[in-house]
């Protein structure tokens, strides 16, 4: 044995096996992680915005929250997903409105307007909001979200942001 043979045959085989195993392992693991996370990565931060037409402003009575529903479609994988979104239009005067999302700020259930009580109530965990969306009682951490809106030629539009 010459002096250059400092690595024994056994150790050499061990090293080669370890390196080859690591390369193969990484070669399979990294794509696999990308494969699983792919939809989460691709769907994030699309930031798409759309103005949704809600029709003439006269349609909405002053002082009474009026529900409006609209459906968005999105391709998820091999399937077209229809998601229904709802909001409440509260017209305050001839030109001033407040558009509230119907998504409860607690955990995302949909609130309903109870005319007799004058409150929005979330059926999941009894979150209660007043007419302007402020929290009266229950677990919601903040008031109902407001939609950005614009009025053009007497027609109401709200800005819908994806995701």
């Amino acid at each position: 044995m010459g002096k250059s043979h400092e690595v024994s045959r056994r150790d050499f085989v061990k090293i080669v096996t370890g390196v080859a195993g690591t390369v193969i392992g990484a070669g399979i693991t990294l794509p696999a992680v990308g494969y699983v996370l792919d939809p989460a990565i691709k769907s994030g931060g699309s930031g798409k915005e759309n103005w949704i037409a809600l029709g003439p402003l006269e349609k909405y009575p002053i002082g009474e929250p009026t529900p409006f529903n609209f459906t968005r479609t999105e391709i998820n994988g091999w399937e077209k997903t229809f998601s229904t979104n709802g909001l409440f239009v509260l017209r305050k005067s001839d030109t001033e409105v407040e558009v509230l999302s119907n998504v409860c700020t607690h955990l995302g259930c949909r609130v309903a307007w109870h005319e007799d009580k004058g409150e929005f109530i979330c059926p999941c965990h009894d979150g209660v909001f007043d007419k302007d969306g402020n929290v009266i009682s229950g677990p919601p951490p903040r008031p109902l979200d407001n939609y950005e809106y614009k009025i053009e030629d007497g027609n109401l539009f709200v800005l819908f942001k994806e995701g």
Partner: peptide, 20 residues
């Protein structure tokens, strides 16, 4: 309804689906 489409999605839509 979805077997064929889901595999098309694996092959063309998902990262590294073709590899797996």
């Amino acid at each position: 309804d979805h077997a064929y489409d889901s595999i098309q999605y694996i092959m063309n839509g998902v990262a590294f689906g073709w590899l797996i």
